[in-house]
Measured scan of single mutants.
Amino acid sequence: KKRTSIEVSVKGALESHFLKCPKPSAQEITNLADSLQLEKEVVRVWFCNRRQKEKR
């Protein structure tokens, strides 16, 4: 499966949402994916990866 490159503006939106809520619910992920026009899975994985980055 190909990697999804996320635009800078979208990254900013994801980042600001992450600061408010690092573990969004499935519903929040769906809403966020719809508003940013990304697949739910891409948003879910982004949050997962971002939480791991926070641990490092």
Rank of each mutant, 00 (worst) to 15 (best):
E7A: 09
H17P: 02
S9R: 12
V45C: 07
K40M: 05
C48E: 14
R44V: 06
C21F: 04
L14Q: 00
E41K: 04
E28H: 03
L19Y: 05
R3A: 08
L19I: 08
R50S: 01
K20H: 06
L14N: 00
T4C: 07
T30G: 10
K2A: 08
T4W: 03
N31G: 10
C21G: 04
V42M: 15
R3I: 12
E54Y: 03
L32Y: 01
P24N: 00
T4Y: 07
L14T: 02
Q27T: 08
L19P: 00
F47V: 02
S5K: 15
A33N: 00
V43M: 01
N31M: 12
V42D: 12
E15T: 01
F18D: 03
S16C: 10
E41D: 14
R50G: 01
R51E: 08
Q37C: 08
R44A: 04
K55N: 13
R3Y: 06
T4F: 09
F18K: 01
T30N: 09
T4E: 10
A33I: 01
E39N: 13
R50P: 01
Q52I: 07
Q27M: 07
V42Q: 12
N49W: 05
Q52D: 14
L19S: 11
S9P: 10
A13W: 05
S5C: 15
Q37A: 13
S25G: 07
S5H: 15
V45F: 07
T30P: 01
E15R: 00
I29A: 02
P22G: 07
K1L: 02
E28N: 04
R3F: 09
S25A: 05
E7H: 12
V8P: 15
A26N: 12
E39C: 09
I6W: 09
V43W: 00
N31A: 10
L32C: 00
S9G: 13
A13E: 10
R3T: 10
L36W: 03
S9A: 14
E39K: 06
K55W: 08
E41L: 03
S25N: 10
P22Y: 04
K11L: 14
F47C: 01
L38N: 02
S9Q: 14
K53S: 14
Q27V: 09
E54C: 05
C48M: 13
A26L: 13
I6Q: 10
L19F: 05
S9K: 13
C21E: 14
I6V: 10
R56C: 04
E28M: 08
I6C: 09
E7Q: 12
S35T: 10
L19K: 11
L32F: 03
V45S: 14
S9N: 15
A26T: 10
R56M: 13
I29D: 01
F18I: 00
T4V: 09
Q52L: 08
S5L: 11
